[in-house]
């Protein structure tokens, strides 16, 4: 059980997908202007990422590895993820308009989210089994949502600040992200008490 806890803490804090691995930066910058949208994006990503890790594990272990087609991993993962995202979007739009209002417009963005492709590939390289893959995927998604929401909160506040003109807008956001990244690197110190 402790093993899973390490996976969770490792993925959420120590090796945070955005701030430490520097993956999924486009939605991190793009959808963090408002707290509400950040929540929506976080929820949508969590949903898709968990699903995508499961599906890609199945494809990798039942299709690609037995046939010796490991070199097709990247492209087949991309196709799988894109299809899952599209399907999810359509199903949500039909079945729950309310949820679609919240997640809807962010779902297509996830298709091109490098974090969503990165996590299944990391799963493979870490050699995780199915459950570990799912936990790893979910915790990376939680880590993504956490920093996205934190960042959106900071940006809402920074918007009211007297930022020098050349630094207005995305520039100050980049600087903020850099500082957050530095802070999250500090979690590496947790490793000592392992």
């Amino acid at each position: 059980m402790l093993h899973y806890l390490f996976i969770v803490i490792g993925a959420v804090l120590v090796n945070n997908i955005v701030l430490v691995r520097i993956l999924g930066l486009c939605p991190f910058m793009g959808v963090s202007k408002k707290l509400e949208t950040a929540f929506g994006m976080g929820a949508a990503t969590t949903f898709v990422l968990t699903l995508a890790t499961g599906a890609s594990y199945v494809i990798d272990h039942l299709l690609l590895t037995p046939l010796g087609l490991e070199y097709l991993r990247m492209i087949s993962f991309i196709i799988t993820i894109a299809a899952i995202v599209q399907l999810t979007e359509m199903i949500i739009q039909k079945s729950s308009p309310v949820l679609y209002q919240v997640l809807g417009i962010y779902l297509p963005l996830i298709t091109t989210n490098c974090a969503v492709l990165g996590v299944p590939l990391l799963n493979v390289s870490n050699g995780y089994n199915f459950f570990e893959s799912l936990v790893f995927g979910a915790s990376n998604a939680i880590g993504f949502s956490l920093v996205l929401v934190l960042f959106a909160g900071i940006r809402e506040r920074v918007e009211g600040a007297d930022v020098p003109t050349p630094f207005r807008g995305v520039s100050i956001a980049m600087i903020t992200a850099g500082l957050m990244s530095l802070a999250f690197m500090g979690f590496a110190g947790l490793d000592k008490y392992r």
């Binding site: 196709i79 799988t80 299809a83 599209q86 399907l87 199903i91 739009q93 039909k94």
Partner: peptide, 12 residues
Amino acid sequence: LGAALGYAAIRF
């Protein structure tokens, strides 16, 4: 996948 998506586009 194309079939699934096509079906979903009509169904949903």
